[in-house]
Write a protein that binds this DNA or RNA. Structure first.
Lengths: 412, 412
DNA sequence: CGCTATTTGTTCAGTGGTTGAATTATTTGA
DNA sequence: TCAAATAATTCAACCACTGAACAAATAGCG
């Protein structure tokens, strides 16, 4: 969100146009039906003349296009509706997870135009090999995008672990990665594009963060504040405040898996005791339900668990209730602290939501002070598997929408 | 931070100047010695011509003034340093708490120019009576400000409870207030000023929030992210992210007192079990230390406790260690989630920090995943009692610094 | 079918605010 | 005393927005 070049805060002459490009584009994106220039003028407070000029720039840069003429609506010259371009820039989303690789392409309007998931157990595979396979998948997606007339403007890679600013994966415990320099490993493979607007062509980010972003644009429109809890082998949370992802001082926010829920409870891999992960992590739930997880890939096991619960298996129900309670305790703490109105159960939790939701809700309404005034919504994620890939791709286009001038100036 | 008038996002011609006023003023405020116009130009990226014009506006509006000529530094025409005006607008900070009332005046530069604390047990007093006494204190502060040539630009009132946007105190349990319309009660008393820039003359806010803001500008300069924990009868937290206060979706963030630390533990007033407040609230600590708190005002009791601990009284030490551990568990959860690098112990915790800090630090370093890479600082608050009043007054001037145009246009 | 009312989108002179270069102001050092 | 150096101001040029007039395209009505 900062501008790398130009002294921060400096407002030159051209900043005005830069800003208004973003404002107008944002209104086009947020509208429920293609707005005319006149409507945009009314909504933004700019004059029609200015809007026309701004729109001309956006049309020239292939960020928006004119919609098909709509059926007559009344007297007067008919308006020409404006929509986000379906053949403009697009974002590439990539994901490495424990048991799959994924790639997808999302266009400016947020539509998923290409999506590939490759199931494979990545734990025994070296980081270099995993990245190489990912590059293949990316090349495939790239070709798909080209066939649809889309230009890839950047890529985001989701990894289940801690990532630093430079894209170095500091620690991804469930993949067994430590200090893996992903961008460097990708350097040998066909590059994406040059830097756009100071952002490198590939951004590496935490899987939970990007999944939360995916939820943001799959869910109801408009800025929202919510907590997206992603239950995989570890538990990650993405925090969306007022429509934008909160990353923390160093970009390592969201480690809800190690929030203490029972300070003297079960020992955790991290060295502490009573972390949420030891009560509501996939391994813990499966073990409590009597499913030894070593034999099955994680997602198969989750499906199996949902089946058992659906058949009213007592052990499964018990395991889910306990996990839900632990999760509810942690979530209640978060909501008390951040005053969020929505909690989304994502990742591995999504298919288990029917059983997890009631205990989570119970803890939250018991423990959240403000729940009496305004209730907290707990709902399953709208996006299915590989939400992080979609969210990552979405974050690329979101960046362009937020600062179209940066993209326009890169155009030949 | 939103603009009530004008369609949101619209950028008119004058916004440029408006913005640059803020940029230049911000640089003057942030500089460590009075910067010249030329320096400002270099740092902002604007031309000297523009800076001169902007500075002229700021001088005319009494927001900045020219510093005394400094001793010669080298060849060339000597520069005239610019400083924030010492006789411009100022903020009035007010605080109602369980055992005191406070008022203070903070000038643009952040200096406390007036400060009064009135000790009194406010619990048996009706809200209307409490507000009346507060109005007296405010009038006194107002006169003090006038004597120093300051103009009050607005006021902020800190209350230990939940406050809504309109200034209605929904619930202040320790004062025994419920649905108290403070601005309406103050209406009979001499008003402050008219609305400035769409903000009402008196803003009511949570005590913990404002105390955190006080810490923000008393602490090291520059944007920071930290958690300010304020241990009074209840426990409140102010969350500062990147130099600005995080208020949550409805403005009710920071209820750390009801974060669960022992889900099946002691019953809490709020109806739940195991809330932090029941382990690290003032009543809990004093009871554990063998001080029956009913007899003493809270702050006297805290002083007494510090004395006992200083004399190595075993019960006191034990009580503080336990409270610190509970606090550490809650704080560890927060830090895991938000990735903050600093935790400030404020309010009633500040004098107890020597004993609370070690157990808090121990829990945090045990339980925070990223503590290994970058340690978390735990320190006592820099500001003493009535920090919230100072923070509130500071928030008023901060608002002016952030949007000077709003103030300038209100000038006669 | 032609006329008017109506709404959209464009054109154009006017204006506010920034730019960049030239100019003036004020000091140090040779 | 004069050149060098740095600070601040002045001024024509320019960019982007404004407001009003104008052109374009349609519906409704006689």
């Amino acid at each position: 969100m900062t501008r790398p070049d130009a002294p921060p805060g400096a407002v030159r002459q051209g900043s005005l146009r830069e800003w208004n490009l973003a404002v107008v584009l944002d209104r086009i994106a947020a509208a429920d039906r293609p707005p005319s220039r006149a409507e945009l003028a009314a909504r933004t407070g700019l004059t029609r003349a200015t809007v026309s000029a701004v729109v001309e720039d956006l049309l020239a840069g292939k960020l928006v296009s004119e919609a098909e003429p709509t059926p007559r609506t009344g007297a007067g010259r008919p308006s020409r509706g404006l929509v986000l371009a379906a053949d403009g820039p697009a974002g590439l989303g990539l994901e490495v997870n424990v048991d799959y690789l994924a790639a997808c392409v999302v266009d400016l309007a947020g539509r998923v135009r290409h999506h590939t998931v490759l199931r494979a157990d990545l734990r025994p595979v070296s980081p270099a090999e995993a990245v190489a396979r990912l590059a293949d998948l990316a090349a495939h997606a790239r070709a798909g995008a080209a066939r649809e007339g889309l230009t890839l403007a950047g890529a985001a890679l989701a990894v289940p672990g801690l990532v630093d600013d430079a894209g170095l994966v500091r620690l991804a415990p469930n993949l067994g990665w430590r200090d893996v320099p992903v961008p460097a490993l990708l350097a040998g493979h066909p590059p994406l594009t040059a830097h756009v607007d100071g952002v490198p062509p590939l951004v590496v980010d935490n899987e939970a963060n990007l999944a939360a972003l995916g939820e943001l644009h799959a869910g109801p429109a408009g800025p929202a504040s919510f907590l997206h809890v992603s239950g995989e082998v570890g538990i990650g949370a993405g925090i969306v405040l007022d429509g934008s992802l909160f990353r923390g001082a160093r970009g390592w926010s969201g480690e809800i898996g190690h929030v203490p829920v029972r300070p003297d409870g079960r020992p955790c891999r991290c060295g502490a005791r009573g972390c949420l992960e030891t009560y509501a992590g996939q391994e813990a739930i499966l073990a409590a339900a009597g499913l030894s997880n070593a034999e099955l890939p994680a997602d198969t096991a989750t499906t199996r668990l949902a089946e058992l619960a659906g058949a009213d298996d007592p052990a499964a129900l018990r395991a889910l209730a306990d996990a839900g309670t632990a999760l509810g305790v942690a979530v209640a703490g978060v909501v008390n602290l951040l005053d969020l109105d929505t909690v989304v159960l994502g990742g591995g939790y999504a298919p288990l939501a029917p059983w997890l939701r009631p205990p989570v809700l119970a803890e939250v309404s018991r423990r959240v002070l403000t729940a009496a005034w305004s209730p907290v919504t707990v709902r399953p994620a709208a996006l299915g598997g590989a939400a992080a890939a979609v969210g990552g791709a979405g974050s690329v286009v979101r960046r362009i929408l937020a600062r179209p001038a940066g993209w326009l100036t890169r155009q030949p």
